[in-house]
Amino acid sequence: MRFWILISIVAISGLSQGMLLPLLSILLEKHGFSSSANGIHATALYIGVLLISPFLEKPLRKYGYRPMIILGGFIVILSLALFSAFHSFLIWFFLRLCIGIGDHMLHFATQTWITDFSPAQRRGRNLSLYGLFFGIGFSAGPLLASLIQFHESLPFFLSSLLSLIGWCSVFFLPNERPQESEQSGSAHTFQRFVHAWKYAWVALLLPFTYGFLEASIHAIFPVYALREHIGIEHVAFILPAFSLGGIIFQLPLGVLSDRFQRKRVISVALLIGSASFFSAYLFHHSLVGLAVCFFIAGMFVGSLFSLGITYMADLLPKQLFPAGNLLCGMLYSIGSMIGPFMTGLMIQFGANHNFFFTISALLFLVFVPLLWNKTKKVTHG
């Protein structure tokens, strides 16, 4: 029951995040704000993640998983409810930042808890289900945002209500704490970050890569499409192909990583993903070809975040799981902020097709050290 309650909460969190991105973009556009201001506003979520990350590990060790999920969920519910009460750019920015803080508390606690109690031979399967449920919720978010046509406050009200229902279920869970050791108990958070990076840096590159990839696809591919005279209705057909591929293949890829050497499975996924985005350049005149390339890419690199956490757990002792999970969230956020800027820059000062080349090159650059890395799991923290 513990596992299914946790991933249900994650699905509701994904629904809220997937709703908030298009909904606030539409509302800010309707209220007359520029596209650049809209883009800056979207970074609030990731700023919230980066601001709170250094302060989460110590309270998690002291108070346990459940209190952090309850507090994070409460911040999200309250913030969602307050959106409809105000119509201010700055207040919405602050509320979005608060949602970034609350969501990160919730995700950090749930993914660390799942990583902690999952046996190594089922960790890939469990964390792929974690990613799958979040992906399904995130994909359903725009449907919730479309309810704005009935009333501007309706999506906010429904998402806060669903979050409240999920939040209440947490009270039925027993509280647990991360495993401690003498070294982890005496070390400062920064020292644990250094240790986690030292032993699992190659696995931690994967959440960064996924953040870069996901944010670039959703933010910059529409710009590329408009410059290549691809209609908005065709973009709406191509973009979901990536998400669909990730959702369909999330669980099979996680199970494969349990049965075969995890590093090899991830290496093959990165190589196929890199080839898929390079192929998208070759088929850029064909809408079906682009959709197929995006779908195949989603199948293999749409699971990089959950696979990154799983591989990180293979390399670290349990007492470093909280630090490793925090680094995963931070690197994902940094990738999400850098991705649209870098790919946008490559398009602005180069050819439009640099969009595909940049993503393909990044995936290949991560594939190389992963393939040749000889790091083994450490037994101390």
Rank of each mutant, 00 (worst) to 15 (best):
residue 358 T to Y: 09
residue 366 V to P: 07
residue 271 L to R: 01
residue 330 M to K: 04
residue 291 A to C: 14
residue 326 L to P: 00
residue 272 I to G: 03
residue 255 V to H: 13
residue 314 D to A: 04
residue 313 A to L: 02
residue 243 S to H: 07
residue 282 L to H: 10
residue 248 I to Y: 01
residue 260 F to S: 14
residue 236 A to P: 10
residue 359 I to T: 12
residue 269 A to G: 03
residue 283 F to A: 10
residue 279 S to I: 06
residue 265 V to T: 07
residue 244 L to Y: 03
residue 281 Y to W: 11
residue 253 L to E: 02
residue 313 A to Q: 09
residue 347 I to P: 06
residue 343 T to G: 01
residue 266 I to R: 06
residue 233 E to M: 07
residue 338 I to K: 02
residue 352 N to K: 09
residue 288 V to C: 01
residue 365 L to I: 13
residue 360 S to F: 06
residue 365 L to R: 00
residue 238 I to A: 09
residue 284 H to A: 01
residue 338 I to S: 10
residue 320 L to N: 05
residue 358 T to K: 06
residue 240 P to D: 11
residue 234 H to L: 12
residue 273 G to L: 00
residue 276 S to K: 12
residue 274 S to E: 06
residue 240 P to T: 11
residue 231 G to R: 06
residue 274 S to D: 04
residue 340 P to D: 01
residue 275 A to P: 08
residue 361 A to E: 03
residue 296 I to G: 03
residue 288 V to K: 09
residue 354 N to R: 05
residue 301 V to N: 11
residue 362 L to Y: 12
residue 242 F to L: 14
residue 282 L to Q: 04
residue 366 V to T: 12
residue 301 V to S: 12
residue 352 N to V: 13
residue 277 F to H: 07
residue 275 A to N: 02
residue 306 S to P: 03
residue 364 F to E: 03
residue 244 L to D: 02
residue 265 V to F: 09
residue 309 I to A: 15
residue 267 S to E: 08
residue 312 M to H: 04
residue 264 R to D: 13
residue 362 L to K: 08
residue 333 S to Q: 05
residue 240 P to Y: 08
residue 243 S to P: 08
residue 361 A to C: 11
residue 304 L to W: 08
residue 288 V to P: 02
residue 312 M to W: 02
residue 356 F to R: 11
residue 291 A to G: 11
residue 229 H to G: 08
residue 309 I to L: 14
residue 356 F to P: 06
residue 342 M to W: 11
residue 309 I to E: 01
residue 297 A to V: 05
residue 305 F to N: 07
residue 227 R to N: 15
residue 249 F to W: 06
residue 362 L to M: 14
residue 334 I to S: 06
residue 311 Y to M: 07
residue 228 E to P: 00
residue 343 T to K: 00
residue 295 F to P: 12
residue 260 F to V: 08
residue 329 G to W: 00
residue 311 Y to I: 04
residue 356 F to V: 13
residue 338 I to F: 14
residue 257 S to W: 09
residue 278 F to H: 05
residue 252 P to W: 12
residue 281 Y to N: 13
residue 299 M to Y: 05
residue 332 Y to N: 12
residue 240 P to K: 02
residue 359 I to L: 15
residue 249 F to L: 15
residue 312 M to F: 05
residue 325 N to D: 05
residue 257 S to F: 12
residue 280 A to D: 03
residue 365 L to G: 04
residue 326 L to N: 14
residue 344 G to V: 00
residue 365 L to P: 05
residue 230 I to E: 10
residue 320 L to F: 07
residue 325 N to T: 15
residue 330 M to F: 12
residue 338 I to W: 00
residue 286 S to H: 15
residue 326 L to T: 15
residue 276 S to M: 10
residue 234 H to D: 10
residue 366 V to D: 10
residue 284 H to Q: 15
residue 321 F to K: 09
residue 325 N to S: 14
residue 261 Q to F: 13
residue 263 K to G: 09
residue 236 A to L: 13
residue 349 F to I: 10
residue 228 E to R: 13
residue 361 A to M: 15
residue 287 L to S: 07
residue 349 F to Q: 13
residue 366 V to H: 11
residue 347 I to K: 02
residue 244 L to S: 14
residue 364 F to H: 04
residue 255 V to Q: 07
